[in-house]
Nucleic acid binder design. Structure first.
Lengths: 170, 170
DNA sequence: AGATTAATGTTATAATATAACATTAATCCG
DNA sequence: CGGATTAATGTTATATTATAACATTAATCT
């Protein structure tokens, strides 16, 4: 990375740069294995997405990409996002029209997303029991699944502890 | 209703005009009880949404409202939609940026939505077991819920039976 | 090396949604 | 009732999100 990382919020109390480099290494590895190209642009976009655990908008990514990539236009970002989603490297957060890095790259990609309206961070959970019950329900309905979006909005445990952040609507 | 209803698909083999009138009567009743105004515009928009069980786009509603409401502009539709969502009379389908009538108006509003990519119809299911597992998962995460969007895309049982509609990606 | 496919550049525009302020209608309450 | 207040709608403008279409450049194949 050529720019200095902002001291992005350590809200979840983890070592974020480790978190990011792990995600990037995994992505590089997966793409290599699959014989698909994690081109410089795609890599940069993935890096930008991983700057935080917040859901980030396409045009926000575009603004952040432009200094690094003169020619960047909406299509540049949307193409990179399409690729990253196809490869299971990021999630599209449907209810926000935004994007967030995926921890569980490559494996089962459909996760429960807990989206905090205070800090905007998104927590992924594989939610095994939920997924089982869901499969069952869908089977009962005789429905064939292509994709799932399970998005919960509310206040995360960290933000609940902050002063002035009640759990109920603000 | 002043326009003639299109012979909208009877795909689920139900009596749709009964289905619609029930939804409208329920809506009128609920709004009266709650002391909120189901104004003519809001009523018309609800009616338009209920013309089918398909998820319908805001601007499509706008086009369909215009002949009945000269002054209709985007704000007209979005305001009506906001009202109808607030009152739990319709669902916003996040993953489609579209809207669909809600059968279970007034009670627990968060439902599982099964969205068919062939016929675009949306089936609501209360999915008790799923919701229980979900509450449990969310509790474990220490998250406070404000709203849920659970949207499954795929092929409904009716469309699976149609020739040329395989369950897998087309 | 030439053909083919993949990725990116570039321009334009479509589709979705909201802001802000003006006007009209409904409701409240003295 | 009648003026004040709130709710709903009208109206203009613009912000935000996303894609289409075609040109160019780079990578891969044989």
């Amino acid at each position: 990375m050529t720019t200095y990382a902002k001291p992005s919020q350590q809200s979840s109390g983890h070592n974020h740069s480790e978190c990011v480099s792990e995600a990037l290494i995994t992505a590089e590895h997966l793409c290599f294995e699959r014989g698909v190209q994690l081109t410089p642009i795609r890599h940069k976009v993935l890096e930008l997405i991983w700057e935080s655990h917040k859901a980030v908008k396409a045009y926000e990514l575009l603004d952040r990409l432009k200094p690094l990539q003169q020619a960047a236009k909406p299509a540049t970002i949307y193409r990179a996002l399409d690729f990253l989603i196809e490869q299971g490297l990021i999630h599209r957060v449907e209810s926000l029209n935004a994007f967030v890095g995926c921890h569980c790259s490559g494996h089962q990609h459909e996760q429960l997303l807990l989206i905090c309206k205070h800090c905007q961070e998104v927590e992924e959970r594989s939610a095994k029991e939920v997924m089982l019950a869901l499969s069952d329900e869908i089977k009962q309905a005789g429905f064939i699944v292509h994709s799932k979006a399970i998005e919960i909005h509310g206040v995360c445990s960290t933000c609940q502890k902050m002063p002035g952040v009640p759990g109920d609507r603000e």
